[in-house]
Design a protein around this nucleic acid. Structure first.
Lengths: 269, 269
DNA sequence: TCGAATTTGTGCGTATGTATC
DNA sequence: GGATACATACGCACAAATTCG
């Protein structure tokens, strides 16, 4: 093209498009110039024009719809998901409280099954090495919805050693269905008093991206949560949320030791 | 190629390479087959072979070194960074404690300057709209090192309204240099009793990736931390860590409200 | 319902520049 | 310097999805 800023052409084209998006010339959902039109307008090859659009797509600023065009997808301001203070009360579903705070309607779908816990989960729940072939946990897979849209995935494991023979063996069954782990455990005399969460981030798997209606390769924040009643692990869960939708908020008081001893477990990884 | 799994060629080639990496045929740091050799060996074009390698690179499984080759870069098991229980004691540097727990040597470099706080920081520190042209915060940029390697970036803002005229105006100066914010604030009669952290994840900027010696496009976990002494914000910081190196561990006691009222501030975003 | 036009996706070929060894 | 490798850029072709008359 004209001047060479010593930067590859396709990056300069991407820069231009990014600026035009930032300027407001292209709004959320607008169609960006097509590959052929970019090529002729800028006097570059179609390959180079396509390369430039790929940059924006990889940055999450655009999505391509085959046969239709490439569309602007502005990153939404992430909502805050409070993961500490709502615990002041163990009653009700934390997720629902978070959504209500934002004025959104919370919902979820789930599927429970009784299985033998895999090794990593055994470790997190403090179960014995294995129990032969016996099924020893209830695994529940959740899809959480905000205003009907899927926004969070969660897989929860509860040891049967804790819940067997009680009315709350199945998390989403009976009187306390949908009320959250804390309230359910309290009802069987196992009040949750400690929690540990391990927060990380990674690219979402193809399945996760699809289930959360996100483009493949979206960044996910993951939480490994474990609940304790005294020295007993009563639940552990893997939670996945898209990083562009949620920021997690933790808070606490300085100078109060919390858990401490629970953290050495599973430290090996 | 042979059978068509109805999947694009370049993805099938990427699958094969990914499997060979997973099987241990290629170890960390090994050189993957070059574009030309892949092309001739598999009977595909160089463009397609290059496309396949790009997939692995975008997944973070490999890095390309121009003129040399494409090398395996296995994701390291992230280390845990404890962000709650060390607060049991406000003495010393939290980062150093975390590194000592892992048997690594902690260090850092920094640069302090006195500036006028930008709007977002004013909000987080609860400062007035603006004070004309006056410099009202000390900004300190840190690079934290583990065994000499940069592993974490942090930018800290401390309001001069709190520290002016005290021996701790400059964080890394004087008797308490390198001892952490909590101990320094305590020394001037502003003991930190509350903290709030907002955790998110995003792609690293080019500068961040370079300073952390990571390939461009690496995922970063970001923390916006604010320290309170009573109702006064005494410090806020932007912390950036590569997601492939650290997972953050939070923990707490159920049924204890923490902070709560501090959270409504800055809720608007 | 059908077909034509458009657009992205994939794959091929080539050429040149530049970094590494 | 020479050989090798990746990075960029060009060209073309066809498939598949979408859109619209």
């Amino acid at each position: 093209m004209d001047r060479d800023a010593d930067r590859p052409m396709y990056l300069r084209v991407a820069d231009t498009l990014r600026r035009r998006i930032a300027s407001g010339e292209f709004q959320e959902g607008d169609r960006l110039p097509s590959v052929p039109s970019l090529a002729t307008d800028l006097g570059i090859s179609r390959s180079t024009a396509a390369e430039a659009l790929k940059v924006l797509i990889s940055e999450g600023l655009a999505v391509a719809r085959s046969g239709s065009g490439t569309y602007v997808r502005l990153p939404r301001e992430p909502q805050r998901m409070i993961r500490a203070w709502h615990r002041a009360t163990p009653y009700g579903s934390p997720f629902r409280q978070d959504m209500e705070r934002q004025g959104r309607e919370a919902g979820w779908t789930y599927k429970s099954q009784t299985i033998q816990a895999p090794p990593e989960i055994r470790d997190r729940l403090g179960l014995d090495e294995h129990g032969g072939d016996v099924e020893d946990v209830v695994r529940t897979d959740y899809v959480f919805l905000a205003d009907g849209e899927p926004v969070m995935l969660s897989t929860s494991w509860e040891p049967l050693g804790v819940t067997r023979g009680t009315p709350i063996v199945l998390p989403e069954d009976g009187m306390l269905a949908g009320r959250g782990v804390a309230e359910r455990m309290l009802s069987i005399g196992m009040p949750i008093d400690d929690w540990v969460e391990e927060v990380a981030a990674r690219l979402g798997t193809a399945e996760e991206c699809e289930r959360l209606q996100h483009p493949p390769g979206s960044i996910m924040v993951t939480i490994q949560r474990t609940y304790y009643a005294g020295e007993t692990q009563v639940e552990t869960a893997d939670i996945v949320v898209p990083a562009d939708r949620f920021a997690l908020v933790y808070s606490g008081k300085m100078g109060r030791a919390s858990v401490s001893d629970k953290l050495s477990a599973g430290e090996g990884a």
